[in-house]
């Protein structure tokens, strides 16, 4: 058997096809590693916790409850959403939390593996994939709660629910793409993580998460421009069986995300040695 030859030198391989091929090969070859890392983290997380799985959905649930309460008591008046408000609010906060987690996942998985990265050479893409596995696991719990909401509030199951898994993957694709682009800089400067979390906090109110898009005004323009809007509203439409309003914009956003995800993967691959150099002691 011919031995595999590795060459390390200052010039990067700028052959995109070769880089992409290596990246995909690594993702495929490291499938056991990524699964193992995800299982390790999930197990450890729940073994050292009393409330366990509750932590996976408590945040979106409480946010939703606050808004449901504000709405019920008449403290704020919201536009009619076309479906029972609790379902609207919870599906919104839940999808929002999934996207948010998807954005955070690449950076937090990479940061958590800092010690490994500076000591051992392994396929780094496995960190990304394990992050997605963890995300899927956490989301699964949230989705089950959501299904309970659908039954309890009499929305029921529509045939469009069958499209939901695809829309769900679309949301993860969208979040992961954004996450991949901020990871290289975010690994160098802590500020990035803080800016992202602050920015997303504001952005939530410019997205139809807990209230619908108003009929007119500046907010309407803002919300319709916001790329998070089609992701949230289309996915929710599939869940509750409404007709999706921003389907065309949704298609565009996902179509742009796919090539960007590939660029993000290459960026990640190229930047890891530089990050290791700057963070290893």
């Amino acid at each position: 058997m011919a031995l595999e030859t590795k060459i390390y030198q200052k010039e990067n391989n700028t052959n995109i096809a070769k880089l992409l091929k290596d990246s995909i090969k690594d993702i495929y070859n490291s499938r056991f590693l990524s699964k193992q890392l995800a299982v390790r983290d999930i197990k450890a997380q729940y073994r050292q916790s009393f409330l366990g799985i509750i932590w996976a959905f408590i945040t979106p649930l409480t946010t939703a409850f606050v808004w449901i309460f504000l709405n019920l008591t008449g403290t704020i008046r919201l536009t009619d959403t076309g479906i029972p408000y609790p379902v609207y609010a919870f599906s919104g906060t839940l999808l929002w939390s999934i996207i948010k987690e998807a954005i955070d996942a690449p950076m937090s998985s990479t940061t958590a593996a800092k010690g490994l990265l500076s000591k051992i050479n392994f396929p780094k893409e496995a960190l990304l994939v394990s992050g997605i596995y963890k995300l899927l696991f956490n989301s699964l719990v949230k989705i089950i709660i959501l299904l309970v909401f659908l039954v309890v509030f009499g929305v029921g199951f529509h045939s469009s629910l069958l499209l939901f898994p695809f829309a769900f993957l679309g949301a993860i694709l969208f979040g992961t793409t954004i996450g991949l682009f901020i990871t290289p800089i975010g690994m160098l400067y802590n500020d990035i993580k803080k800016i992202i979390s602050l920015g997303l906090g504001f952005l939530m109110y410019a997205t139809p998460v807990v209230y619908a898009i108003p009929k007119e005004g500046l907010m309407k323009t803002l919300m319709e421009l916001n790329p998070f809007t089609p992701i949230i509203s289309t996915t929710r439409a599939f869940i509750v069986g409404q007709s999706p309003e921003y389907l065309a914009y949704y298609g565009w956003v996902l179509a742009v995300c796919i090539p960007l995800l590939v660029v993000g993967l290459l960026l990640y691959r190229i930047s890891i040695p530089i990050l290791v150099e700057r963070m290893s002691a």
């Binding site: 030198q9 200052k10 290791v276 290893s280």
Partner: peptide
Amino acid sequence: GLINPDEGKVT
């Protein structure tokens, strides 16, 4: 292969 050299080559 954890960090890239600034000059030279490793095979």
